[in-house]
Write a protein that binds this DNA or RNA. Structure first.
Ligand SMILES: [Mn+2]
Ligand SMILES: [Mn+2]
Ligand SMILES: [Zn+2]
Ligand SMILES: [Zn+2]
Lengths: 138, 138
DNA sequence: AAAAACATGCAACTTAAGTGCATTATTTCC
DNA sequence: GGAAATAATGCACTTAAGTTGCATGTTTTT
């Protein structure tokens, strides 16, 4: 797959072995992952490197960090349509308190909120908590 | 002020010296405070005690914890009208990235969000980030 | 091929949060 | 009122996530 290689280069990320592996890892998941999740997913390689790798991805707009209220940062790949400069893709996130998984609901945008005079919004974070479809089926 | 004393008792919290002081401290502030803020506000008394005190307040519905994305928990007094059992007061919070203060916008409720089938919501957290009125006036 | 720039690995540090346990204060009950 | 029970406090210690410094290894540039 040098498709991924090209993708990384488009984001000005040099495609090293670990970076390719991490991209694949993130791509296979459909839920947001913690640094620990990533670490567990790799036999080899080291915490710090994985940390710096995910931060590189984040800085270059390949993943976004999610703060779901658990106190541990999670990360998920940006959707292709939001990768190119379309910076503010304010979709919401759902955190399941049963299975502890957090997912991007990319087509549920955060509604507009009117604020008191003087406040200027630059960013938003909306997290819904509850039980997810999988857990509710059990 | 045994007005405060009565208030604590109503919440099944025994009004010790530190608890009264902490309540007053929180009451004077109009912004959410971290445990460090509280610690700095007291000459005497100890981290752990303050920690357990704020947790007691939280458990008994006197304060709520706010996760504004800074990675540090903040706390603010519940508004009187929300204290009595009216548990789910889902107001939003504003975090100023300039002065790092976080405020409750108690009369800005989180709008209703429709979710994909199978998801059940129990709780929500909406944080807006930007610059606050005070910072924008400067 | 040498120099420069960048990536990786390992150790160490920082900060917030949380627990165990002994001591002290407050309630309860006789 | 005083002893026993219960709760609050203080201090030490632990955990976990995040982060940085620096030496070494690898890739890119010229
Ligand atoms: Mn997302
Ligand atoms: Mn609030
Ligand atoms: Zn679930
Ligand atoms: Zn401000």
């Amino acid at each position: 797959m040098d498709k991924i290689e090209r993708l990384l280069r488009q984001h000005h990320i040099r495609p090293t072995a670990i970076r390719l592996l991490m991209y694949k890892f993130l791509h296979e998941k459909n839920v947001a992952v913690t640094l620990n999740d990533i670490e567990s997913g790799f036999d080899k390689s080291e915490r710090t490197t994985l940390y710096r790798t995910i931060k590189t991805f984040e800085k270059n707009g390949l993943v976004h960090q999610i703060d779901d209220g658990t106190g541990v940062a999670k990360y998920a790949l940006d959707e292709p349509e939001n990768q190119k400069g379309n910076s503010q893709d304010l979709h919401l996130h759902f955190h399941c308190t049963s299975c502890n998984e957090t997912v991007c609901l990319t087509d549920h945008k955060i509604p507009h909120i009117s604020l008191p005079k003087g406040f200027v919004t630059q960013d938003m974070n909306l997290v819904l908590k509850g039980t997810c479809d999988k857990c509710n089926r059990k």
